[in-house]
Amino acid sequence: MAFGGMELFSGINLSFEKDKVYGIIGTNGSGKTTLFNIICGVLTPTHGQVFYEGNEVTGMKPWQLSRKGIGRCFQMVKPFNSLTPYENARVARSSAGHYSKGEEKFSLDEIMELTGLKDKRNIVTSELSLPDKKNTEIARALACNPKIMLFDEVSCGLSGEEIYARMDLMRKIADYGISIIVIEHIMMFIKEICDEVVVLHAGSIISSGDPSVVAQDPKVIEAYLGGRKL
């Protein structure tokens, strides 16, 4: 049962199924973030269409799509710095979350608990550390009542232990029945949590499928891993 399918760049068809964790990898400039921007409505594709839950959503604005259940975390953290983590989540709950009232998977308190921000919920976000700022973004996206969440390199700038914590959190989110698409550079991360992986290179898909199979694909090794075998 497909909930989304799209034509990306030129002559490419990409679809994501419900209740799965997808990984997107690719070299710099291969179009990973562009893909996210198209899914979120930041960019309108010049050709082709975007479908979500069987309906065409091409050209819809980000705020409309987030109300339909698409949540996103940025690569460079962008929390609302003058607000506390709890208020960050409140903005999302009262905006996008308002359109799916009664379908909330978790309350704001549960989100704070889940993202480990319970003790810091009343500190202004600008004073928090980078991992907590990233947690704030995840909490904010969760408060939208998303059906699908997009993570753009959430491990960027984090230490090993923090990355493991992020992987645990993502698994928990997936267990709640939220589909996930992650952009990631760390192969270990992708192998651990993803059901399927898509490899982008220069705006086209060069490989896709099971992570461990894709990692052995000679085309992927050449383009992305620079000839080295993982």
Partner: peptide, 24 residues
């Protein structure tokens, strides 16, 4: 209130505010 928080959210990061369903 929620509306006031949205004001500040739009001021802080407009593109992120849009991403959580705020109509700027």
């Amino acid at each position: 209130k929620d509306l006031g928080l949205r004001f500040k959210a739009v001021r802080d990061v407009p593109e992120a505010a849009e991403m959580v369903g705020v109509n700027i």
